[in-house]
Structures are given as structure tokens and as C-alpha cells.
């Protein structure tokens, strides 16, 4: 058995930790570092509940070794909101009832954020294709697609910045509030 000293920067905070070679990124985040917002569902790369951003890309953290992520920037669902200010995607899931039990939601949102970064104006079909790797047992997906459309609209209109500043917020014009707080 080999152990490895690694550094993970999670939501902007640097963590040094020692992991077994076989420790999965999902377990390092949840069990070692306490980022339990990342859910583990199928454990077999299929459900997407464990999706996080690894250097800006959505990945299933149950299918990556923690050692492979040494030195990487990771963003989990805990890193979406800016303090008390919800991220556009979080507000949209809330407004559109994009969740029931909520188990799939962290992964759904992390994949959606990447989708909207690559394609700010997706069709409903493109949203469904983009979320192909995330399963939901509750909602029937309609409201999830509605939520992603809603978030796309508010992000495009600039009403809600990536990081969650809303239009009727007096600080909305302040350029320093337009960043999600993610250091990349």
C-alpha cells in the first residue's frame, strides 16, 4: 500500500492531506475534508451525483483517484453560492422546483454550470444531452430542464452573475461581485 501527500484546492481553500493511492476523489472530499455536499449514489460512474469541477471541468469524483487530482482546483456545490447569495443555478432550481429529494441536485447543478459556460443559450434538447450523465429518480427531469433554462436566461441577461448577485440588488453594478469567488 502506498500513501501519498497531496494538495487539493477546494472552493479556493488549499488543503494538504495524506491519502492511500486507492482513495477516490469523492471520498477524499467527503470523508477527509468534509465537503459532504458531493453525494455518492451509484458508485459506478453512471448517476453523476458525485459530479464536481476539476480544473473547471465537470467530472464524476467517484471515478477519479484523489492522487490524480493532486495540485488541482476543485469546485464543489458548496462553492457555488457567494456567502448568502445563491448562484443563478441554485436560485433557478429553487424557483422551478428542480428537485424533490435533492439527492441528484448537487451533481445536476455542477454539470449545468459547465454546460452554461460552454453554451450560454442552450435549447431544451441540448440541456437534456448535456445532463445525460446525471440521473434523477424523482423529478422526471422537466423541472430540471426548466431550471437550467431559467438560469441560462438570468446569466445571459446579466441579472444574476455567476456567483449569485441579483438584478434588484444595489450591488449588481459592482464589477467586483460578478465573480463566483472561484480562484482559477
Amino acid at each position: 500500500m502506498t500513501e501519498h501527500d497531496i494538495t487539493l484546492t477546494v472552493n479556493g481553500t488549499e488543503h494538504d492531506l495524506t491519502v492511500e493511492a486507492r482513495t477516490l476523489l469523492a471520498h477524499a472530499l467527503r470523508d477527509e475534508l468534509g465537503y459532504t455536499g458531493t453525494n455518492i449514489g451509484c458508485e459506478s460512474s453512471l448517476c453523476g451525483a458525485c459530479t464536481v469541477h476539476l480544473d473547471g471541468e465537470a467530472v464524476k469524483s467517484c471515478t477519479a483517484l484523489a492522487v490524480q487530482a493532486d495540485g488541482a482546483e476543485i469546485r464543489t456545490v458548496e462553492g457555488l453560492a457567494d456567502g448568502d447569495e445563491l448562484h443563478a443555478i441554485q436560485r433557478a432550481f429553487q424557483e422551478e422546483h428542480g428537485l424533490q429529494c435533492g439527492y441528484c441536485t448537487p451533481g445536476m447543478m455542477m454539470t449545468s454550470v459547465e454546460l452554461l459556460k460552454e453554451n450560454p443559450n442552450p435549447t431544451r434538447e441540448e440541456i437534456r444531452e448535456g445532463l445525460e450523465g446525471n440521473l434523477c429518480r424523482c423529478t422526471g427531469y422537466q423541472n430540471i430542464v426548466n431550471a437550467v433554462e431559467n438560469a441560462a436566461e438570468s446569466l445571459r441577461s446579466g441579472a444574476v452573475a455567476d456567483g449569485g448577485t441579483v438584478a434588484d440588488d444595489p450591488t449588481a453594478d459592482d464589477p467586483t461581485t460578478t465573480d463566483g469567488g472561484e480562484s482559477k
Binding site: G48, T51, A58, V59, K60, G130, E132, G133
Partner: peptide
């Protein structure tokens, strides 16, 4: 191939 997350890795 696969889905977005699979294609990223």
C-alpha cells in the same frame, strides 16, 4: 462517447 463528464476525463 459516454456523457459530458466521461468526455472530460
Amino acid at each position: 462517447v459516454g456523457d459530458e463528464q466521461v468526455r472530460n476525463r
